[in-house]
């Protein structure tokens, strides 16, 4: 077999570098938004109002019960159709569309937000009631106890799991190829189908993913260790 490694690296490399930028963009933005969304959902699920709790239980179950792939299709293709339909009035027909990347970020945010909300929820519930009561006894309000005592600890305790989600997220950006985000997989597919350097292309792709996720996973391990020592 005659493998053209250097040609593949030269041909595919620059494109993959651009892909890496897209992947990092999608991952970082989605991760930040998903963390915020997760915290909000977790708080709503711990709300004293039954209706709010109910709404978000249903939301989380829907998200967790459907594949990310389907969610991405739904947001990219179906949601604009629905919006256009809903917003059309009289003769005017709006033409709402999402860019592939923003639909991808929205999908990952919602999907990961639902999972992260469960992480936060259990981390919040895991904080000793005694600590909450000692906060209340000092004169803090319920909200202050939540903000100053419960949430800081819940966030800290969630860091290892969040780190795992971050690494998973980098890898899951490959799913964005299906809604035509030019991330790494799509670029590799295109290159491989044009040059027939299939083995080289996909091997390079796998290596790029490893280079992206392994150091991150390692950093997360170190952070986790540090937190174990402190507690």
């Amino acid at each position: 077999m005659d493998l053209k490694w250097s040609e593949a690296i030269e041909g595919l490399g620059p494109s993959l570098l651009q892909g890496v930028v897209v992947v990092l963009q999608a991952t970082i933005i989605s991760f930040i938004l998903a963390t915020i969304l997760g915290l909000l959902i977790a708080m709503c699920r711990l709300s004293k109002w039954k209706v709010i709790r109910g709404i978000f239980v249903v939301f989380v179950e829907i998200v967790r019960g459907t594949p990310l792939l389907v969610q991405l299709f739904y947001i990219y293709y179906v949601v604009p159709l629905l919006l256009n339909h809903l917003l059309s009035s009289g003769g005017t027909q709006p033409n709402i569309q999402f860019t592939a990347l923003s639909a991808g970020i929205a999908g990952m945010t919602i999907n990961y937000g639902a999972y992260i909300s469960e992480v936060f929820r259990s981390a919040i519930l895991a904080i000793d009631t005694g600590q909450k009561e000692s906060g209340l006894a000092l004169g803090f309000t319920q909200l202050q106890v939540l903000r100053k005592i419960v949430i800081p600890q819940a966030l800290r305790n969630s860091i290892p799991v969040l780190g795992n989600y971050l690494v998973m997220m980098i890898k899951d950006t490959s799913l964005l190829a299906v809604i035509s985000v030019s991330e790494l997989l799509l670029r590799t597919q295109t290159y491989a189908s044009q040059t027939f350097q299939t083995i080289e292309s996909y091997t390079i792709l796998a290596v790029v993913y490893l280079v992206l996720s392994l150091p991150l996973a390692h950093v997360m391990k170190m952070i986790e260790k540090k937190f174990h020592v402190e507690n």
């Binding site: 000793d128 600590q131 000692s134 209340l136 006894a137 005592i149 600890q153």
Partner: peptide, 15 residues
């Protein structure tokens, strides 16, 4: 409650 302090059996310091 700011006028009435309380000390618990389990201390409950903020770790």
């Amino acid at each position: 409650r700011q006028h009435v302090g309380m000390v618990f059996q389990g201390y409950y310091l903020f770790p």
